[in-house]
Design a protein around this nucleic acid. Sequence first.
DNA 1: TATGACGCTCTCTTTTTGGTTAGTATAATT
DNA 2: AATTATACTAACCAAAAAGAGAGCGTCATA
Lengths: 131, 131
Amino acid sequence: MKQPPVPVKPWPESDPAVDALVTEVIGRVADKWTMLVLEVLADHSELRFTQISRLVPDVSQKMLTQTLRQMERDGLVVRTVFPVVPPRVEYRLTDLGLSLGAAFCGVWRWAEENLRRIEAARAEFDARQKR
Amino acid sequence: MKQPPVPVKPWPESDPAVDALVTEVIGRVADKWTMLVLEVLADHSELRFTQISRLVPDVSQKMLTQTLRQMERDGLVVRTVFPVVPPRVEYRLTDLGLSLGAAFCGVWRWAEENLRRIEAARAEFDARQKR
DNA sequence: TATGACGCTCTCTTTTTGGTTAGTATAATT
DNA sequence: AATTATACTAACCAAAAAGAGAGCGTCATA
């Protein structure tokens, strides 16, 4: 039995190359540590490495370094090194980083507002499965 | 040299338990496949398994099944099985799923609008590193 | 009789990710 | 003279995630 061909999606841009890039960017940016760092940096305009590590629970040095490097590379944060000893490095969001924070705000709020619903859905699903 | 204590973050809710849950939910929901499935389902209100797999580029059966199950468990999609042969299963977003799609729209748009900037930042960063 | 469609599940292997530990430089502190 | 603080890097290893491939049950088509 042949299915009718799937209609072309009416999304504004359907350029596969752009799609792929957007997907990649979102995948990169929507990761757990990036979001948490984004949040703390949105709250405190300027932070040092260890301050961030204290504010983001359970982040390892390795992950924090990695995340900050990526964010720097993507133009989300600026990293300022003060040539003093012991070293002092400060991080702050760029305008791009701030705008991403604003965009994510919607998702963050959605998660807060719908936590209950999700938990309820999960409980119901699990109960249904057990039967 | 002792740093002054980091100020408490002025975020609306600072309940660590809620924070953890929100983080977990976002982590789950902000994953690549979930977002892509969300997008195609937001575009076509009702789709069958193979239709989705054709619309989401490079998704393996395994990942698609997994993603759809998770989304169903979280109450984002409804799965309707028609007891016919060959099997027919339809997926559609719930209201919760639609609202998540709306929330993500902002991030999606952000990514589209700022692709260039990100690519430019990366290029600049990489060039700076090479020196 | 063989093949394909559908919506999966199961197993095996590869890739990716993340944690842990050790090390670096140098000035100030104990 | 030893220790502490800072912001890392590098190496190694375990765990988790993802990809590849086979199989399944049944009906319709070739």
